[in-house]
Design a protein around this nucleic acid. Structure first.
Lengths: 209, 209, 209, 209
DNA sequence: GATGAATGAGACTTCATTCAT
DNA sequence: TATGAATGAAGTCTCATTCAT
């Protein structure tokens, strides 16, 4: 009920973040419409009223939550890209594995995808944002990698348009599988990732002459 | 308001189907939780009470709707499989195109996927059913095609496990894209399908020796 | 579905009575407000619509039912009165036992009492009727018996006013007990009836001088 | 609409009691099934939603209401018993008058009886509770009084079993009369009570030798 | 006469939002 | 800042009543 001052001050500053975290869990668990603000409040350890001190409506809370959790998704992709060295094939391999970690294994990435699919129609602005700030840049990076490989003669020169999307598509498949089946998916994930990378590479690489 | 002769009899027999159809549209549009039975009723051209003559609860209506719309999904896959002739590569190509038509272009297939992702947690039984009755059989068909190709020496013999899932993954990607972006997806779908099939084939085919 | 003509004709004539009987059971089981016309219909072996052929509303059905079931209650009381012979004390004894049979043991009498208590406020006319057609005549009969006994010197001459009501009160007590506890009441009914008659007689009889 | 200082605090503490009071009035007026929560809310001066802050369902509200109103019924019976002095006959007289006040004149006692009769079937647990916590103890008290009188030689030694129930039965009769006919019962209540006590005493007392 | 599909008002219940403290 | 009591609109579900067949 009453807490020492330092603690309290610290809490105050972190409240919004705590609420957003709780909102993520709550909305991920039941979906936007079925989630009660009271659920969020309980998870955050506050009361309903407190949420309204920081977020004007349930919609805004949801939007802010999605934004805050999307924010980091792309953060270190660039860094990773810089760190992975070697031939294009190798860099692409590394980047795909990074994607699996980011968007599949990491719950955050997955659930954001669920929000887009489940509630995107009610939040078109959010979808547009997500596409602009996350999907497009990501596609750009992979495109860069592939183009580089093509330029270097590593990859086939006659790759059809949209190949890039096809290359990353299997990562999304695994995300969806996890979204649907939870943490016990009916897929051998390691074997799947290996198969994906193997197949993609075989498909991309220029035939050894 | 005014009913002509025979109208009533026809209606009685077709009501459930009409309601299920309306339910599909309504639930697809707003998700399970956000859809009001009144929406469904209005779309079906009946009143709320009428729905309860055929479905005992909103949950049951949803379940029946998903079932009735899943039902046909697999029906002609088998037929198609029998109709496509030629080499394994060709048969697989044909089957993948069939999948695109069935699960991506056709709204039914897509929206079922949305229900699984958005509301599967609330209907675990439905998810299990869908996996058993739709996903597994489908995977089996593709597996058969691939195995046949391998046996015939058309496809590489050293294909990693889970390759089959990787091969069909891109179809699901396009489904998801449509689910999120509607009927104006930021993807050139024809090019995408071509790229997918091209890439998959290159990856699968045994290197010409 | 289709019945031989004679049967059908017979049924038609008896329908209203059958429905009233079903209504009695249904209303007695759950009370007026909680009983659905569908319950009544099911018990009567007809459909809801049929009820409306004979009774214009649920209220009217209830009223008719109460009336029809009250009707017989008093019928043979007079006859009984005429049949019981002997001294006034003996006649009163006999009449009280008759009352126990009529209003307590017989489900009809009991449930009518329940309707009066539970739903009388919604059917004041019914209450008035019941009082006029059943309670008052009954009280009159008992009064007659007691007066006769007093006149004959059998009963005390200084009986207070309202003694008659006190004398029959214990029969109603047993009715209520049955209404509340069903057919396994926490009372030894035979002993109770004996005690009642014994006590009443002791209280009424003139002290032997 | 506008709230003065401290108003709120007081309200919070008293709300449940206020609601229970309103519920008593509402349920007594129309019966459990026919009473709308809105009626209760209006009587309590709150809105429907507020009721659910304190009671999870209509059923629970009803049960709590019956319990809270049964609670006091037995409280001072014991005290009364201690206070009344004199011979057993006198003590019994006093106790019967107390019963009339408590269970007949006092609306609380009466309406609880109505709930038992009208809705007991839907709340069997409540009936059992009421019997255990109210009826049995009360019977015990009267039994004690009578036994005492017998032991003292005041009352007849050969009283039949169940006499006790017969002795208090007429109080219940008056309760029922009031339940059915409201506050203008077709009985001269004072005369009735006198007649009851007179008759009971005459029946119980040992013949003066 | 009998049916039962259909209606629609109204019940219970939930929950986003407000606001006095 | 934080609370949580209170609101009231809205949702699911029920059921008396109607009416075409």
């Amino acid at each position: 009920m009453f807490k020492c001052d330092g603690f309290r001050r610290r809490r105050k500053a972190e409240r919004p973040a705590e609420i957003l975290e709780a909102a993520f869990d709550a909305f991920a668990a039941r979906g936007y419409a079925a989630t009660r603000l009271e659920d969020v409040a309980a998870r955050a350890g506050v009361t309903k009223g407190t949420i309204y001190l920081y977020f004007s409506t349930k919609e805004k809370l949801f939007e802010e939550m999605v934004r805050s959790h999307s924010a980091g998704l792309l953060a270190d992709a660039d860094a990773i890209l810089g760190r992975i060295e070697g031939a294009s094939a190798n860099r692409l391999r590394g980047f795909l594995r990074f994607l699996y970690g980011r968007c599949v294994t990491d719950r955050r990435g997955r659930e954001i995808l669920r929000f887009m699919i489940a509630d995107g129609k009610s939040f078109p602005h959010l979808v547009a944002e997500h596409y602009r700030d996350f999907v497009l840049p990501l596609l750009g990076m992979v495109s860069g990698l592939v183009d580089q490989g093509v330029a270097a003669g590593e990859f086939r020169a006659d790759l059809p348009r949209e190949t890039v999307r096809v290359v990353i598509a299997p990562t999304l498949f695994l995300s969806v599988i996890r979204l649907i089946f939870g943490d016990a998916p009916p897929v051998d994930e390691e074997a799947y990732v290996d198969a994906h990378i193997e197949l993609a590479m075989t498909g991309l690489l220029a035939a050894p002459t």
